[in-house]
Each structure stands twice: as C-alpha cells, then as structure tokens.
Write a protein that binds this DNA or RNA. Structure first.
Lengths: 123, 123
DNA sequence: CACGAACTATTACAAGTGTATTTAATGGAC
DNA sequence: GTCCATTAAATACACTTGTAATAGTTCGTG
C-alpha cells in the first residue's frame, strides 16, 4: 500500500521514538515543526492503520500504535524506485549527476571515498 | 508545479525523442509498454501544458508539443528531494544503504570507484 | 448510575491523479 | 459549400491526499 508524504512524516515519529505511542504522543512529538491540527494527525494515524503501516492495540479508552514497516525497508523501497525510474537502475549516474551540478560537498566526497575503500575490502 | 508519475512518463517520451511531437507521435511512442488509451495520453498532454511543462504550438488542425523542463532539472529535483527527506541531505548514507542490502552490483562498485577517482582529480 | 472529559470513528470537502468518454471545432475531399 | 474524419476541448468519475469538523463511545468521578 502506498504511503503518502504526510503519512511518512508521521511514521518518522515512530521510527525515531522506538516503542508504542499514543495518538497524543504523536501529536506532541509533531507539535514543534509541523503545523497539523491534532485532528489531522489522528486522521493520518487511522489511515496508516488501514494501510497496515501501523498496528493499534487498545489501552483502556485509547490506542497505542506501533510501526509495522521498518524505516530501512521504506527508505530502500523509495530509493530503488527513484533509481529504477530515473536512472535505469544504476547507482553511479545518480551520483554523477550530483557531482556535475557541484552538489557534492567536500565531506560527501570524503565519505564516499571511505565507503568505496571499505566496500572493496568486503568483497 | 508538481508533475505526477504518469505525466513524467509522458515527459520521458519528449526527452528521449528530442524535437517537436504531435499527440499522435506520443501515443505511438507509448504504444508498446504503457497501456493508456489515446484519450488518456491526450489528457496528460493537456495537463502538462497547463502546468507549463510542455509548450504547444499550432500546426494546422493539431498541436506540436515541446518540453519546457529539462530532464536533468527534473531528475535532480527528484533526487534532491529524496536525499533531503530520507537521508538528511547526505549522499553517502544513500549508497551505504544499498551496499548493506547487497544491492550494489559488482559493476556498480567498479563504476563508483572510477567516479570517485575522477572526482578527486577535479578538485 | 449519570455526566463530562477524553478518545475514537465517521463524515466532509476541495484539489490532484488515473482513466476515459462526449462534444465541439476545423480542415480536406467531393 | 457540405460532410467526414481528425483533433482538441470539455466533462466525468472514482480514489487519494491534505486538512479538518462533528458525532459517537467509554472511563472515571461524584
């Protein structure tokens, strides 16, 4: 089931906060940045449950929610989709593009070098 | 203006085919893979014009369309968005994730190495 | 046990998307 | 000049998304 952008922001709260959260917890956690009303956030919770991205267990008069999708999986799926759709499934052109646009920081390059070196060792 | 996934498939036709295309050309070009009716494709063309992603110039009783957005720009925008939303703006974790999932081919690694080497020279 | 507060569930609604169909316009063939 | 075949424009419609508001339920308190 497809997860919308707003819904994924809600999921992020769960991924950050490891453990069960009540609707109020989520509202509290999102209070700072996002400007959604409590009602809106509850809507997203319900939709995420329907989409089986969250599980809800009753706790007295309220529910406690817990994520059913792992961030790694979600993130990987999104990444794969982008790479497949826009780069014909190849990673390097993705990077090349950033470098061509001078959109790689010095740090990015340093990190990449380190990563590649390590990759080499692993195989 | 946001371009939907289906619309971007139509844009791909233009990016591949360099030059002006009639609605029929687009329909013909999409005939093989996508299973959209000619009507549907025409709808996408109209919407893309409204979104100013395509320009339409009359040619007798029909229109010829030409892209107003460059593939590089679209692709970069999508990529940036993903990197910012899911990887806190950093490229390396994006790659790391693929490597951790054994989702990098031997070729990917080879290409990456070459790229990194070249990057080093450029700066 | 009745009431109010705290939650949940249901409903709303406009904009965008995917997928067309119907209607209107127009240019070429007779 | 009229009619047909093209082509474009307008309209349709259900589903999703963002953004709630309202109605219904349930627990704890007096």
């Amino acid at each position: 089931m497809k997860i919308s952008e707003a819904e994924s922001k809600v999921l992020e709260v769960f991924w950050r906060a490891q453990g069960l959260l009540s609707a109020d917890d989520v509202v509290a956690a999102m209070d700072n940045d996002r400007d959604w009303s409590a009602g809106t956030i509850r809507t997203f919770l319900t939709r995420l449950v329907k989409k089986e991205a969250l599980a809800a267990t009753r706790d007295g008069r309220r529910y406690l929610y817990r994520p059913l999708v792992r961030r790694e999986d979600y993130v990987h799926e999104q990444s794969r989709k982008l790479i497949d759709q826009l780069f014909d499934g190849r990673i390097t052109p993705f990077i090349t593009q950033f470098s061509e646009r001078q959109d790689l920081s010095r740090d990015d390059v340093k990190e990449l070098k380190r990563l590649i070196a390590k990759l080499d060792d692993d195989r």
